[in-house]
């Protein structure tokens, strides 16, 4: 599949990159950031995005690598490749490492970056298709058209307009670690809790503003919190999560974050005796998601599996408790 024509910039350092993004944003040029390109390149090949400029940040070495923070946590550059991430956080955050290794394939993990994974495009069976195929069903909202094939009642102005599903595997796990992201733009930076990065729409899916770049992910240390992630998919390689369930236990706190079943990660937090919180989480989980027929598994099945996986993750964590 041929890539469409675009112009290409590959700045050598961060300030230059931010300045360039600011210029493009100000001039109203449609641009896309290219990190590892494993999500962006297929998207461009399928003409999913009209694009003027590709801004590759792959030379910004400053954004690569994992550093320890004084508080014992980690600061991970957005450009850190998933294979490197898995290696470098294995000791401190084995669950992040394991989760990274469940993404896509070894070759993809050698290019794919943490930032790209957190910002991976939402997916839908009507959208992630060749342009020819999108024409068969008439282009939907996400493709610039005037219809949603999954929610035919949706009208422009509806919120959310598009219900393409959120699929990042790492996001739910990092959210339960209370991770923050650093968004930089020319001359300024802001920090955001990762869970606040996302918007509830399949098109306008994040808070990243024009001109902004995700530069770092901050993972605070915690002596007591443990997190486990279970990924539901028919094949144990390649496949995106049909449903991903991250669960954290921290004293009396139970946290749950779900991926693959809504337009954004769904986060649940409870405090109290585990029996009760667990029961509540299992009841709430299926209600808080909105899976659609966009995946190998039916919406009903993915809903049904939420409590199963929550329980299993808790069981794993509880087992780890009593060595």
């Amino acid at each position: 599949m041929l890539l469409p024509a675009f112009s290409y910039e590959r700045p050598a350092e961060l300030p230059g990159a931010l300045a360039l993004l600011q210029r493009l944003a100000a001039a109203g040029v449609s641009y896309r950031v290219h990190a590892g390109g494993t999500d962006l390149v297929p998207e461009l090949k399928r003409d999913e995005a009209a694009i003027g400029t590709v801004v590759s940040i792959s030379r910004l070495e400053a954004l690569r690598g994992v550093r320890a923070r004084p508080d014992g946590g980690l600061e991970v550059g957005a450009l850190t490749r998933l294979s490197a991430l898995a290696e470098e956080v294995r000791e401190r955050f084995p669950v992040i490492s394991d989760t990274a290794l469940q993404i896509a394939s070894p070759q993809i993990r050698n290019r794919a970056t943490l930032g790209g994974n957190l910002l991976v495009d939402n997916r839908c069976v009507y959208f992630n298709q060749s342009p020819d195929h999108r024409d068969v069903h008439a282009g939907c909202f996400k493709a610039g058209g005037e219809v949603c094939h999954l929610v035919p009642s949706a009208k422009r102005g509806a919120q959310p307009l598009c219900r393409a599903r959120f699929v990042s595997d790492l996001a739910p796990v990092l959210i339960l670690h209370d991770a923050k992201v650093v968004l930089a733009r020319a001359g300024a930076e802001r920090e955001l809790l990762l869970k606040d990065l996302y918007a509830p729409d399949g098109i306008q899916r994040t808070q990243v503003a024009p001109g902004e770049l995700l530069t770092r992910v901050l993972i605070p240390a915690s002596a007591t919190r443990r997190v486990h992630y279970l990924k539901l998919r028919i094949r144990q390689a390649l496949d995106f999560p049909s449903l991903g369930v991250a669960v954290s236990l921290d004293g009396k706190k139970l946290g749950v974050a779900l991926t693959g079943v809504n337009t954004h990660p769904v986060v649940l937090a409870y405090e109290g005796a585990l029996d009760a919180t667990l029961k509540q989480a299992c009841e709430d989980g299926p209600k808080r998601v909105a899976p659609l027929a966009q995946d190998f598994f039916s919406p009903a099945y993915r809903r049904q599996m939420i409590p199963v996986l929550i329980r299993r993750a808790v069981a794993v964590l509880s087992k780890k408790d009593t060595p």
Binding site: V125, Q129, H133, I234, R235, A237, L238, D239, F296
Partner: peptide, 12 residues
């Protein structure tokens, strides 16, 4: 119509 969505068993 893709190797991602048409599920051929993987090595696993």
């Amino acid at each position: 119509a893709s190797f991602l969505e048409y599920k051929i068993p993987s090595a696993f």
